[in-house]
Amino acid sequence: MNHFLSRSPFVIALAFGALGAAGCQQNARVVTDDRDKIVSIDQIDVQDWSNAADQVLQQLFASGALDTAPVKPARVEVTRVINDTTQRIDTDLLTQKIKIALQQSGKVAFASSDARANEVADYEDFKAGDDAPRLPYFVINGKILEIRASAGSTKQSSFVFQLNLVNTAQSLDAWSGEAEVTKQGTRNAKNSKG
């Protein structure tokens, strides 16, 4: 009995620890609200891509640059978006959102990168005796950069998304836009309320 009593504080602490750990666990759920998504300090979260795409799209539509094309919808190609951050990221997360929005607007049409589709289109052109290459009127390129700073235990990451719309007929930037997402804190948060 004495032996049990001497060990009981340890057993009780263990039991409380197990209960505490079980209490901290959360069942998986589907998150649809951006405010409930995890906010990471040092990486681009899923909601950040949407935020950045929204910022550059608003700038692009307000500029009127898309309306300078002689034919609508103007043919567009996305050439390269350089990832100049420390993370391994797929830049399609940005360009696909921009592509969807621009296509929705009806102002541009994106050249397909599908090899089979291009092969069929080439054959149709050949049959029709049309040997003119399908050239884009606009090209989209860009860069994603990262700037880090810290003060004491507070860390800050800024991600800058730069995009250019190039008029290929004149080889001039018809529009250039930039979006920034900056996050600050001492640790990642479960949601936007911290």
């Binding site: 909601q47 935020n51 959102k97 969807i100």
Partner: peptide, 8 residues
């Protein structure tokens, strides 16, 4: 909209 969501 592909970019619809909450902003702060």
């Amino acid at each position: 909209g592909p970019t619809t969501g909450f902003r702060q």
